[in-house]
Structure formats: structure tokens, C-alpha cells
Design a protein around this nucleic acid. Structure first.
Lengths: 226, 226
DNA sequence: ACTTGTCTTTAAGGTAGGTTTAAGGTAATG
DNA sequence: CATTACCTTAAACCTACCTTAAAGACAAGT
């Protein structure tokens, strides 16, 4: 689950970022309106947190531009008490929720959960394909015979594949969704995790495999046995 | 057991807080309506005590907003005699009980017990798993061989684990329920108590263990012996 | 008010496991 | 057969977690 956090006060931004990370969100932090807009347009997020007062472009304008460009990602606006009028403006402009600063951390995380819940509401706890099951709560990958624990990155890669069975996913799509934008990591790292996953899939006797398409990316498919 | 206490008169608030703590409740005290609302929305409480006359937002409004946001935590309203009419209003708005000030301490604690009992009504006095038993009245953890006393925090952590056997509980969930809200350096305290509990579990020859899942949290499970 | 004992939190160093890099190998494509 | 893309492994690096000790809070008794 990936969140774009647009908040120019570094201290608050860092605090919120830490809290989100502890709650298993991946966070991209930006510190001004134009970055918020650019990153938001990529549609790689499950939720966007927008401060209203920001350098270069204010949150309301970012919000309007995102919506007018067809971005439907749920958005939570942060407003200082003095900007209360903006709230109505914000909600009219297509925000899904707002919070006035200062706020309790508990409320923040509760609202983020509510915001992203709509995406997960229909998402089952367990994904299956062929004879494998991926438990999204305890990160366990299993067949009826055996079971292994997946590390975070392994889990994220396999989850993405299982959410899109038989669909070709490009290496750069993996990079965009799973690794942060500011990551220097090479494409190679995707290959490495594909290799790890293949080994684990084989070790539990899975009847699905990760197929590579040269120059493009990967697909999760049932093993043809002929 | 966690209580949110919203009462703006400091002296009364402190007194009630002390009484609750003596009775093994964890208390978060707030002194105005908006804080009461914000904290209440986090849904981390087993009961909420709301004064009606408070700065910023009165208790009735807080109550209505909590209920309209789906919060079902039991709520006890405190009203001055002069505000008697509000009582009916409060109960209609979704309060579970009310008390008129001034009141006797004994009555207060009795009502809090009644309020929180519904959550514990089906919860037994003793929790067991594998060969261990946790006595929720005297904080004693025992096997048939030996027995140790648990301190408050130790007890709360283990209780949470035993109420959810084989379920992965995140470190931040522990922080939310047992400690006040998330902060970077202090997650450590959860680790410390996990360490203490592991030592005590081992010392009485328990056949259950606390397993860690890196990046996620902890699970209480029977020890595999192969 | 002082002491004492108990519980809670902080701090710091260590360890294991997770992540990324790097490098050499293999297979597909022209 | 040369090139490119991908695979695999291992080592380096990084982070989360474990453990212990000690400081800090708090309450009970003197």
C-alpha cells in the first residue's frame, strides 16, 4: 500500500512518514506543490496526503489539477485551523477527507486506514492461483504440502504478480510500484527477487511459474505440463 | 483496559484518572471537546467518559460525531445537575450511561465496570494456551510446574497475544493499545517486554513461544518440537 | 520528607536476517 | 557468433530486532 505525502514542514513530514511506515505503508514524501502534482499524476498511489499551505502550488490547486486529469486516488487534505474555510473548498474540489492541524496521531492513522480501505475492501486476505496461496496477513506462501515465509520485498513482488495473473508486468512497473522513486537501485534487483521467488515456488512444489518475456517483463502463469 | 477521560476541570480529571489507574485501567486524559473527538475516533478505547460542558466542543456533539463515524465504544456522560435536560438528549444521542455531578467515587467506578463489562462479559478470568494459564485477576502466569507474577505492562502484552492466539500482531498495534501513540525511538519498549515475557515463559517451562516476524510483529504459538 | 523496592522506559552494543550490489554465467536473438 | 538481456550467487551493506544494564518514575513504608 503506497502513500504520497505532500507536506512542506520537514518535522511533521518525517513524523508522519515514520508512522505510516510502521503501519506498513510505502511512503513517497514530497515538499512542495509541483512535486505533489507530478508524482500524483503517476497514479501509483493508494492514497495522497496533501497539505494546503505549500510552496509553489497550494494543495487545493494540486487537488483540482489531479482530479481534472482523471486521477481518482483518495485524497486527505491537511489544513491549519486558520484555513478552515478551505475545508469546504477542498471537499467541493474533490477531496475525500480533511483534518485540521494539530491532530492526534491515532486519528491520522485511522483516517488513512479509512481512506485506503475502499481499495482493500474487496481485496481478500489470501490470494490463490494454481496450487499456491499467498497469505497477506502473515506473509506466508503455501501449497497443501509446504509453506515458506516471504520477506517484504519478495512478498510485494509476488503479490503484484498474483493480483494480475497472466498479465505481463514490466520491470519498470515493478520498480515504480515497489521501490521508492528516489531509490538508486538497479533493475537488477527485480531479477534477483524473481530468482528468489522462483526458488521458493519450486521448493514448495508450486504448479505456477514466473515467465520472463525478453525486453518486457514477467508473467505469472500455470505450468504447462505436457 | 483503556479509558478515554474527557473532563476539563483539572482537579476532577486528575482524581478520576488516579482512581481509574488504581483499578488497573489505562487512562488517556484530554481536556476539551476536539481532543476527545480526535482520540475517540482512533477506536483504541474500551470506554469513554465525556463531560458535557467542555471548551471547543461540548460532550453531546462529540458523542454524536463519534457515533455517526461508526465508533461503538461504550460512553459514560458526566453532567452537572443544572444540565439535567441534557441527560435525555445524551441518551438519545447514543450514550450508554450518565452520571450527575457531584457523585461518589464508588458509584463512578461501579459504572465504569458496568460499562466495560460488556467487552469482558464473555471473556474468562483465565486465559490458557498450550500448558500456560494467565490469571487476569491476580496477574499470575503459570504452568502446572511453576508460576510467576507479571507486572502490568508484561501482563497487557501477553494478554493481547493470548486473546489472539496464532495471530500476527504488529508492534504499532501494541503501541496503540497499550502505550500512548507511536513514536520512533520508543517502539523499543515493546521489544523489551517481549524479551521479558520470553524469559518468564521459558522459566516456567511453557510450551508456547512468542515468534517475531521481521518488519511486521509478533505471534503467540505452540512450540514446534520435531 | 527520605528510603526502599518495584515497575517502566531509555540507551547502547550485538546479531541475524533482509536488501542491494556486483560479477560471472547462460540463454535468446539477430 | 556476437550481442544483449536475463539468471544466479555471494558478499557487502543496512535495518530491525534482541538483550542487558542502568536511569527514571512511582508508591509504600519508615
Amino acid at each position: 500500500m503506497r502513500i504520497l505525502l505532500a507536506e512542506d514542514e520537514r518535522e511533521l513530514s518525517n513524523a508522519l512518514s515514520a508512522i505510516l511506515k510502521h503501519n506498513h505503508y510505502t511512503v513517497d514524501a514530497v515538499y512542495n506543490g509541483t512535486d505533489a502534482l507530478n508524482y500524483g499524476l503517476s497514479e501509483n498511489y493508494d492514497g495522497i496526503v496533501l497539505d494546503i499551505m505549500m510552496p509553489q502550488m497550494n494543495g487545493i490547486d494540486v487537488l483540482k489539477l489531479l482530479r481534472s486529469n482523471g486521477v481518482e486516488t483518495p485524497i486527505l487534505l491537511l489544513t491549519a485551523k486558520a484555513e478552515l474555510d478551505d475545508k469546504i473548498l477542498g471537499l467541493n474540489s474533490g477531496a475525500d477527507d480533511y483534518m485540521t492541524k494539530p491532530f492526534a496521531i491515532g486519528e491520522f492513522i485511522a483516517r488513512i486506514r479509512a481512506l485506503t480501505r475502499r481499495n482493500t475492501a474487496f481485496a481478500p486476505n489470501k490470494l490463490t492461483m494454481g496450487n499456491i496461496t499467498l497469505n497477506r496477513e502473515n506473509f506466508q506462501l503455501s501449497t497443501d504440502k509446504a509453506s515458506v515465509h516471504l520477506a517484504n520485498r519478495e512478498f510485494q513482488v509476488l503479490e503484484m504478480l498474483m493480483l494480475n495473473p497472466n498479465v505481463l508486468i514490466s520491470t519498470s512497473k515493478f520498480m515504480d510500484r515497489i521501490w521508492s522513486f528516489d531509490s538508486e537501485a538497479e533493475r537488477n534487483v527485480v531479477w534477483v527477487y524473481i530468482a528468489y521467488l522462483r526458488r521458493k515456488l519450486a521448493s514448495i512444489g508450486a504448479n505456477v511459474e514466473i515467465k520472463a518475456t525478453r525486453g518486457v517483463g514477467y508473467t505469472l502463469a500455470l505450468i504447462d505440463e505436457e
